[in-house]
Amino acid sequence: MYAQMIKSTGKGVKSLDEMDPEERAFQERINAGGKIEPKDWMPEGYRKTLIRQIGQHAHSEIVGQLPEGNWITRAPTLERKAILLAKVQDEAGHGLYLYCAAETLGVSRDQLTRDLLTGRMKYSSIFNYPTLTWADMGAVGWLVDGAAIMNQVPLQRTSYGPYARAMVRICKEESFHQRQGFDIMMKMVNGTEAQRRMAQDALNRFWYPSLMMFGPSDAESVHSAQSMAWKIKMNTNDELRQKFVDQTVPQAEYLGLTVPDEHLKWNETRGHYDFSEPDWDEFFDVLQGNGPCSTDRMEARNMAWDEGRWVREGLLAHAEKKRARKMAAE
């Protein structure tokens, strides 16, 4: 997911009886479906876990601009160019909304950015994979946004008010992203032989990385249990992954594409598809910074930040001069 492997700082889930009155009131409010707002009391662990999770989600949106941005100047028609540009722009907007949500927890956007750029904070593993053909624009929209939506839709009900509101806005804007991806895929599979090959190749390369987006199984994780009790995580990783596979396989069949998993099979008794796990060693390699594009992504973000410094400072200096001139005139 866009926020993977988030560890809560809690030491396991306390029962209501073990909590002091403040924390108990906080937990009861969450249990009753209430929202926690910035000025409300909250346990320190809740605050820190949320900063990590929202921050990582925001970083993923920002770094996530790069693999699709890679094709804006090569989009094959004016309309495709405009659609792709609008989509990548949305990702910048979503990063912005999420950073603002994190800022209500007492951390600044620049602080979070510095933590991204120094490698202290992570972004989703998926954005460390390259986009090699135009069909990848289809696959990213269809699979990557499709997987992201699985997680983001339930997060609209998350307990932290600013986060929930950001997710409402994001989900609304994002609804076109997956569809435009599928639309590209349809064009490709109905096109020339070369286009069909590109489409299959894109599915082959993005299938397992998409499954990795949900993170390793966390059914046994105390961190996940705590996050679920706080309602900042709404489903287990396995639930979401299964839901994604169940939804996506028929779509691949519709496109006439083959999911690259020989063990993929409908299981009548479970009422779900059985499927192969992704290579989790690869996942951990990517998280360690050894993804195919990890170095490129971090270089691009660092360059943007470093080369943008004079602009940020220049406009701030001008604003200060203007304020000083105005005060002097009064």
């Binding site: 560890k7 007492g106 620049d110 360690q288």
Partner: peptide, 28 residues
């Protein structure tokens, strides 16, 4: 670096929301 766990926010105890920082554009 398997998770952002090491990225601790202990040092950034809830600064008031929107408090301007020296080189950062203010929040509106």
């Amino acid at each position: 670096m398997s998770s952002p766990e090491s990225g601790s926010y202990d040092a950034t105890e809830a600064a008031p929301h929107g408090k301007p920082r020296a080189t950062e554009w203010p929040l509106w």
